[in-house]
Design a protein around this nucleic acid. Sequence first.
DNA 1: TGACCTGTGAAAATCCGGTTACCGGAGCCG
DNA 2: CGGCTCCGGTAACCGGATTTTCACAGGTCA
Lengths: 265, 265
Amino acid sequence: MGLTAGTLRVALIDRDGAFVKTLANRLDAAGWQHRLLGGIVPLDELVAMKLNALVLDMSVLPPEEAWPYLERVCGMLPGLGVVVCTNESTVAQRVRGLRLGADDWITKPSHPEEVMARIEAVVRRRRRSTAEPERGPLVVGELEVRGDQYQAFVAGRSADLTRREFELLQALADAQGSVIERGEIYRRVWGYEMAHGDRSVDVFIRKLRIKLERLSPGWTYIHTHFGIGYRFDPEPVDGSAAEPPAGPPAAAGQGSAVAAVEPAR
Amino acid sequence: MGLTAGTLRVALIDRDGAFVKTLANRLDAAGWQHRLLGGIVPLDELVAMKLNALVLDMSVLPPEEAWPYLERVCGMLPGLGVVVCTNESTVAQRVRGLRLGADDWITKPSHPEEVMARIEAVVRRRRRSTAEPERGPLVVGELEVRGDQYQAFVAGRSADLTRREFELLQALADAQGSVIERGEIYRRVWGYEMAHGDRSVDVFIRKLRIKLERLSPGWTYIHTHFGIGYRFDPEPVDGSAAEPPAGPPAAAGQGSAVAAVEPAR
DNA sequence: TGACCTGTGAAAATCCGGTTACCGGAGCCG
DNA sequence: CGGCTCCGGTAACCGGATTTTCACAGGTCA
């Protein structure tokens, strides 16, 4: 069972003293970080907490608020595990909740151990992707992306990236060679669904490009794929020389010719 | 594309006639593909079924076989959603099952609708996380369709397709060999019903043909089926030789009823 | 041959991303 | 506590890329 990195971050939106208390004890015992919230919390605050899962008691809110809230949370935070927990419920309610995006629905009273096991199950499912690709210092082109410093360097010189810029860079770099759609980038960096018409990604791409260029002219790192998103792939600015150094054989390869910075027809 | 791809593939390992029967009815009504298995099935057979989820009644097997089986299934098939379903169970059993890798644990009697909602929830999560196994680079003729790049290549050269063009190509290629009606193509690529008289598909087919031809003369990929639609099938331009290599084994063909017009050539 | 399709070319209408300017909030400093 | 600077985020403008729409020419089928 060594899979689940020991410590999960969980938030409870509940008011059932007894339930919360015993659960909290267990959580502490297991070394999970947790936080008790009394009621609705704005989505961006939830994002800021960097939670793995949220346990929500629907009864802390009147139904006409609870359902929409559940829907918004599930819809906007695709990376968050959501476990609904109620005293009683009908089949219809459970089905509705699950269809709205909840990952599990537990009926109280319920043993804390089972609640935890279900949270684990939910998180495990979503984690598989997050396959933590060790933030080992990553070197691409003449750029060095250091996750432990939240910075990128070239020959020891810092790119002076802000937090967002760095996260964006890292998200791009982690995808090594494949195109990532804007929405996906937004999801990975900002943590929730991108609103229609949001241009944040573009603007930050630009900021990033400027800083990278200033630091490492002679290389192009970020390629635009019209109508799709961006692709990170270090490429000597010239373009005549073919082979970029360390080429992940399967993927990008010399396919770097892809329609981005090319003058085209 | 598919968010809640209407059709899921599920297998049930159960012997509870009544439960299975009512559930099966619902599954049929919802259009899910399902299969009833009487007992343990070798893992590779499960793999071969290309399931989205497995519903397992632990009681079809003696405990000393059931637990190890559950563990193996969960451990070896990370892409499969596993929902355990039992008549009765203790907290300890449920916790054990969930920790072993089960995604959910339902206690009978349970409403079929809820079982389905839970299966959906499990698969939904699973999908998001397993989003990795992208469309493996698909190779047809001398063409290489790379989903992770939204591009098609020939010998590393990009076809410089736009998003729509690429999606069209992919839609066609995915149907490997069978004819797709215009309306169907439109639905898959554009996402909604094609308006009467809309020629978009034709226009894009042409653009695609041009780009593919420029990249890979010597091959014909897109064939017109008069009055019906198009068929994707790489064919050396020569034309005299009929069937290139292996015959298309099992037609994945879902609804593409058309197929009858083949002889045309 | 006539009624229908599909292939073509291009113009017209949209969509998109690059850029810039500007705003409000957070944190820092004196 | 005010003034400043840094940052993230939004709104707008603009030119270029992409999609759609049209009008016809060329083919196919009965």
